[in-house]
Simulated scan of single mutants.
Amino acid sequence: MQPGFLSIRSLTKRYETMVAVDDLNLEIAKGELVAFLGPSGCGKSTSLRMIAGLAPATSGTISIGGKDVTQLAPYRRDIGLVFQSYALFPHMSVLKNVMFGLEMRKVPAAEAERRAREAIAMVQLEGREDRRPAQLSGGQQQRVALARALVIQPSILLFDEPLSNLDAKLRDEMRSEIRSIQKRLGITSIFVTHDQVEALSMCDKVAVLNGGRLEQLGTPNDLYERPATAFVASFVGRTNRLSGVAEGDCISVGGKALRAPGASKGKVELMVRPHRMVMTAAGETMPDFGSEPINSIDGEIRDVYYAGDILHYEIDAGGQVMSVERTTSGGETPVSPGSAVNLTWRVADTLVFGAAQ
């Protein structure tokens, strides 16, 4: 494995009998933005804290730019950290909050103020330098926290679920702003999140963690289209899961024969993305897939709900519930619950994994 600018080798964290992070290995190139994605308790924040030096590693090494920093104190690692809770000093102005890290590094006052004002301008908070955190919105406070992390010009920038306290609109704005600033400055960054939309839309690569272990590292496209495990397939994006028995590339699901590329022998889990399935009700025209091999299964609509741009259908297919999404075009009448339907999708869109034990 080619060493990265940030190199994490066999990183492990144990708390008595519990293993929070288990043998994590990652190589992150200079300038990359990598997400640590996973459910609560998967080890992503613990990994970030070890990289920052806020939690000692039980074993393993952390190197930045070829230098082993595993045993160094946090302030000697040249790392900027943006917290979920902002962690601003309530009695200080915006300017003083941003200058704080520079003052601790004994940067001369005039230079510290100049750099702080530049960082404040970078996050579009000019004119608010004299305000206290309580006088700012949540989004503005997060911008101050970002400016404070950037002003020290760190080699590595770490984000610990920084957008989770913001409303949906502000999260969208801050996603774009953080990504734009990170790309412009070329700072190697790690972004911890449990939100797959943040991970897929912002980051160059995504490390999916589960139970303290790395399930897969790849580009957003790799993870979505070529998930390495059933966990990755189900956690990254929505998916339908069907249980079946495979014999070669043929899978028996509730007495129905389906096909999948690379299926093996024995019990398997078959997965299909809801938006890759086409639902056809009575009187509707069957879609034309050309010469592509397809899978098809019959079912009955159990429920339907409207989500603006999407109609979500829940379908009973031989005792297994499947979800299908239809894009709304305006004015259409949803197919009613109880209606018989056919579900069709490309064999190439079928994912198969060994059955969970």
Rank of each mutant, 00 (worst) to 15 (best):
L24V: 15
N25C: 06
N25R: 11
E27T: 03
I28D: 12
A29N: 15
L33E: 14
A35V: 10
P39L: 11
P39Y: 04
P39I: 10
C42R: 05
K44R: 07
K44L: 04
K44W: 01
T46A: 12
L48A: 09
L48W: 01
R49M: 10
R49V: 01
R49L: 14
I51D: 03
A52L: 14
A52N: 05
G53Y: 06
A57F: 08
T61A: 01
T61F: 09
S63H: 11
I64A: 01
G66F: 00
G66E: 05
K67V: 15
D68K: 09
D68Y: 08
T70H: 01
R77N: 00
F83H: 02
F83W: 00
S85T: 12
L88I: 07
P90D: 12
H91T: 08
H91D: 08
M92E: 10
L95R: 13
V98D: 06
V98K: 02
A110F: 14
A112D: 04
A112P: 03
R114K: 15
R114N: 15
R115W: 12
A116C: 04
R117N: 15
A121D: 13
A121C: 02
M122H: 03
M122V: 05
L125H: 04
L125K: 14
G127P: 10
R128L: 15
R132S: 12
P133F: 04
